[in-house]
């Protein structure tokens, strides 16, 4: 067998569209993350999975006892059924943001990992895609785990609910792409703290725990502009089996987030490490 050299491998892609930015090897970046993951502590991994489950038990079953049933678009459902999709969307957001902000910030500024990657025949888009794809793979596993727990408890009334798994990966993709783009513009830990500050109100007010109709019209418009509201609405529509055209709108919001996030991340990585 003839073994291809690094030069032959790189030359195969020469002349293709975007060959300056993409070498077609985002998977080698994922391979790196998998290798690091194998030797990391499982506690960190487990915590990402356990968080939404704890919320579900505390609020869905604990607080839910006092709240009783809720009425959503002429459907009467238990409070746990109401918040389960909200928690799935929220945990997709949190996981993706954690991976794409703190992790990326560390690799960019502390361990200088990306400089090392970009000294090879990889391009900046390989790095961005590889990092995001890894975050999504983790998100996928968390989503499957969550659905596997809540479905037997009867918290996903509709079979459409199975689509909540790919939907939460889409949500994670959107947040990861934007998170990585924002992180690439940030240069200090203090600024990183501001990201968390923006996430908390979104978590509390986006309709995960109660319908946003409780707020005045003007506040609702603001909430509807934020991404988590679209994530919660998308997944809730699927788990409750309320399928209509608005779900496509919610999904479209995340498609735009992904496109913008990838564009700015690649642009910024190029500016930072290729200037």
């Amino acid at each position: 067998m003839i073994i291809a050299t690094a030069v032959e491998i790189a030359d195969r892609r020469a002349g293709r569209l975007g060959d300056k930015y993409y070498a077609g090897r985002a998977r080698s970046v994922m391979n790196r993350n998998f290798t690091a993951f194998k030797s990391s502590t499982w506690l960190v991994v487990l915590s990402g999975f356990i968080e939404p489950v704890l919320y579900l038990f505390a609020f869905g079953f604990g607080l839910g006892q006092f709240i009783g049933d809720v009425e959503v678009s002429n459907n009467v459902i238990s409070y746990a059924v109401f918040i389960a999709p909200g928690l799935l969307a929220t945990s997709a957001m949190n996981g993706a943001i954690y991976d794409s902000t703190w992790n990326v910030f560390f690799k960019m500024h502390e361990s200088r990992l990306y400089q090392g990657m970009l000294a090879t025949s990889l391009g900046p888009l390989d790095v961005a895609l590889g990092e995001i794809a890894w975050a999504l793979l983790r998100g996928l596993i968390y989503a499957i785990g969550f659905v596997a727990i809540v479905a037997p408890l009867g918290l996903i009334p509709s079979w459409w609910g199975i689509l909540a798994i790919p939907a939460s990966v889409l949500i994670a993709f959107g947040f990861a792409a934007i998170g990585m783009a924002i992180t690439s513009y940030i240069s200090s830990f203090q600024q990183m703290g501001a990201i968390n500050l923006a996430l908390l109100p979104m978590f509390l007010f986006s309709g995960a725990f109660y319908p946003i109709e409780v707020f005045p019209e003007s506040a609702q418009i603001l909430i509807k502009a934020l991404p988590l509201h679209h994530g919660v609405s998308l997944i809730r529509g699927l788990t409750l089996g309320e399928i209509d055209i608005s779900l496509l709108g919610h999904a479209g919001y995340f498609v735009i987030m992904i496109a913008l996030g990838l564009f700015f991340t690649t642009k910024r990585l190029t500016a930072l490490f290729m200037r």
């Binding site: 790189a10 892609r13 020469a14 790196r32 690091a36 990391s40 990992l113 000294a119 391009g123 290729m274």
Partner: peptide, 22 residues
């Protein structure tokens, strides 16, 4: 031709950027 040229090079930077998790 960034990636094509970098395939020919081995780079030892001034500051170590080894992968500390590995």
């Amino acid at each position: 031709h960034g990636p094509q040229i970098r395939a020919h090079l081995g780079v030892v930077p001034q500051q170590d950027n080894l992968d500390t998790e590995l």
